[in-house]
Design a protein around this nucleic acid. Structure first.
Lengths: 240, 240
DNA sequence: ACCGATTTGTTCGTATGTATA
DNA sequence: ATATACATACGAACAAATCGG
């Protein structure tokens, strides 16, 4: 299998072998690779030789290594385009992925300062909060809270349950077109709850977009806070 | 000199030391560096630790090693006297740069896959890399690498140092207007090196924008990778 | 909350091969 | 031919992060 005579270093031969297994699908995206010690036994070489190969694979973006956990085949990232007209499910369908939006919770609550300011209403006014999770290819990629002013959309929860999408729900209330007024993008470590919702370790950061959608008249109709698993999602800002 | 307690690996500390000596001119371009065994004695570490640092320096294009002969400072085509505090003056928001930028390094290097693809050139073609850091209120907020195709902008570094701004530098080359083709935004944990450059703990995530600027004809003129300290920076996407 | 097992990261030690001066 | 210097590889130990019970 490995040759110590043909001039090609062992680590390079191992690199090529693993690379072939990754690109050919023997190891699938996201899958955990054998540990260094397992590879050591498999190839009958020293751990450093394995590490040299893994380092090169990491540099070349084929694998991702997490200390204390293992090495994983890098998943192709999911693009999340942001423009003035952004729809989550549309973004994903455009990439031929199966989008899934799971409604987790829907409650009426009082608007706190941030929500009130975003929706241009008074603090304490009742808003409907819809919590949902986004999935793509069976992977949890987002966790979002959307706030709607209840006075504008009474009974929005039932409609949302029925249609399962923000666009069609708002359309039901006569808001046929809305656009993104502004998007704020930040990044931080997740809380334990957030990490749990995103099915990711709490040691990995999350990407967060805070956006305000307004109707044709400029009235805010939705304030959304969306958390993305940063390992799997990148945000693409395209000129509109 | 070296610390075994501060969390930064010895090889990285050595890397930074040698890098500083190279960029500051203690070791001049083309000059032979001390041998591995000499470095071993100088730093009182194992030869492998030196080799790790030299490997990184090689990867980053600062030195070039010749088997059986030694390691040498890579000669940039243009010789840059290192006055490491060059100020960007104006029009910085366009490059996602905060006021108070310092030029850290400018070297000609070979384009890797990502850079080549972004600039629409061949891998290995020479590009000019300008590394700089942004500061605001005395706090390090960004660390960026910009890549320019050298064939389009020969001697860009001297011009850049003269004008101090990307806009005016490109204008000198006849690129009077350029625009952002696309911006990719991701977030991840920083490497220790990146955390060091950003003067932030390595436990805080970084926001990263990768952008491509093109001229009127659509030809890529700059590829920039900018890291932000996510604790201090948020990205605002507003409709244009 | 703690402990032990697993896994990756770093460092030192050693040996052998190969290219160059 | 010998010495120097880089390249590769193996072995051992410990540190740091993760995960399960």
């Amino acid at each position: 299998m490995l040759s110590r005579k043909n001039g090609m270093p062992l680590w390079r031969q191992i690199y090529l072998k693993i690379e072939a297994d990754v690109t050919s699908g023997v190891f699938e995206p996201g899958q955990k690779l054998p540990s260094e010690s397992e590879f050591t036994n498999l190839f009958s070489v020293n751990r450093h030789t394995i590490r040299r190969a893994m380092g090169a694979l990491t540099d070349d973006g084929l694998v991702r290594v997490e200390r204390g956990r293992g090495a994983f085949v890098r998943e192709p990232v999911i693009n999340y385009p942001v423009s003035s007209r952004t729809r989550f499910s549309e973004n994903l369908t455009r990439q031929h992925r199966a989008p899934g939006n799971v409604l987790l919770m829907a409650v009426d609550t009082e608007a706190d300062v941030a929500v009130a300011e975003a929706l241009d209403i008074k603090e304490g006014e009742i808003v409907t909060r819809i919590t949902s999770a986004g999935e793509a290819d069976g992977r949890r990629v987002s966790y979002s809270n959307s706030f709607f002013p209840r006075t504008l959309f009474p009974g929005i929860v039932r409609i949302f349950r029925e249609f399962g999408s923000v666009t069609r729900t708002l359309s039901h209330f006569g808001v046929d077109d809305y656009s993104r007024k502004r998007t704020r993008i930040i990044s931080r470590m997740p809380t334990k709850e957030e990490a749990g919702e995103l099915h990711q370790p709490k040691s990995r950061p999350v990407l967060i977009t805070e956006s305000i959608n307004v109707d044709e008249t400029g009235t805010p109709v939705e304030f959304g806070i969306c958390l993305f698993a940063s390992d799997w999602v990148q945000i693409l800002v395209e000129p509109s």
